[in-house]
């Protein structure tokens, strides 16, 4: 009878070794890598959230245990153009089983654009200290051929209450206009493609033309979001490399920054890295070009001179 009791002892020791204490402490950094996430899939204090733009991506395979936040309905107001209200966001957080000790890891398709946008919404609603991005998002997880699950995660709802929000992380049209009119000393960063920035095109291919003027906000500099990532796996470049990319266009953190794009989601990607990785003072302008470029009477820089012909 020695063998079974020895086995039992071994099992006890082994389970102690993989008990919650064995989980790595949540990284203090704004990013977690796929290796860390793999080790923490069963960590009860980690909630993984997928924010992808394409429907059906989550259902056909997501990181095990991840819950799904739908960009078009969960994180926005469905009637007026706004992010999810405090009340509906609180309900969403509760239903995802997020509590005061939870670390939230966001990831998604399309190079984490929408996951980064989700992270910005978390920050605006006061949960900035809880949220991290999986560096490389879906892209690196699939590239490394790590396991995916197709079951909807089952989570227990909480009664967590949102802390005070941080509305100051959101730039409004008036803030951007002050910069354009040189009334505020702020760096404006336009992260759209060079052709959108110069005014040659109104919207990238595959997106509808939603603004009736082409070009950019006067005084903005252009660093397309793609310059911040390693193309092969979608991870962010190193902090030193990132610093250089932005310093080359004069953005060095010495002044506050406002990021914008077309609808505010790609710019969240740049907002995240500038504010969370480099520690700069950054707001995201979610109205972006579809608000600014449609506003009456605001100054516009349109180097290409493209005229809107009503089509």
């Amino acid at each position: 009878m020695h063998t079974p009791s020895l086995l039992k002892a071994l099992v006890i020791i082994a389970s102690a070794a993989i008990a919650p204490t064995a989980f790595a402490e949540p990284a203090k950094e704004p990013l977690v890598n796929y290796e860390w996430l793999q080790k923490n899939l069963d960590n009860p204090n980690v909630r993984i959230v997928e924010v992808s733009v394409d429907p059906g991506v989550y259902e056909r395979g997501h990181i095990p245990g991840a819950v799904n936040f739908r960009w078009h309905t969960d994180l926005v107001d469905k009637v007026s153009r706004d992010i999810a209200s405090r009340d509906s966001f609180e309900k969403l957080i509760q239903s995802a089983g997020i509590d005061k000790d939870t670390t939230v890891v966001l990831y998604g398709d399309n190079n984490n654009w929408f996951a980064a946008w989700g992270a910005w919404v978390f920050h605006v609603h006061g949960l900035g200290d809880k949220v991290k991005l999986l560096d490389g998002g879906r892209k690196i997880w699939e590239l490394k051929q790590l396991p995916l699950d197709t079951k909807e995660a089952s989570v227990t709802a909480t009664s967590f209450k949102l802390p005070a929000g941080k509305p100051g992380l959101r730039a409004r049209l008036s803030d951007v206009l002050s910069v354009a009119e040189k009334k505020a000393d702020v760096h404006l960063l336009d992260i759209r493609s060079a052709d959108e920035f110069s005014g040659k095109i109104f919207a990238p291919e595959g997106s509808k033309e939603l603004s009736v003027r082409a070009g950019h906000v006067p005084g903005a500099v252009n660093v397309p979001w793609g310059k911040a990532v390693n193309a092969e796996d979608g991870t962010f470049k190193s902090p030193a490399e990132l610093k250089k990319v932005y310093a080359d266009v004069g953005i060095d953190g010495s002044k506050p920054i406002i990021t914008y794009c077309r609808i505010g989601e790609r710019s969240s990607h740049s907002w995240y890295l500038l504010s969370q990785i480099l520690g700069y003072d950054v707001k995201n302008y979610d109205g972006s070009w579809t608000e600014y470029g449609n506003s009456v009477g605001v100054p516009v820089a349109n180097a290409a001179g493209t005229v809107w012909l009503g089509k």
Partner: peptide, 18 residues
Amino acid sequence: VLFGAWLPDPASGRLPPD
């Protein structure tokens, strides 16, 4: 079977993807 895994509550107001 797929619906049961992907959308456990059919009355949630959502439709199964695609």
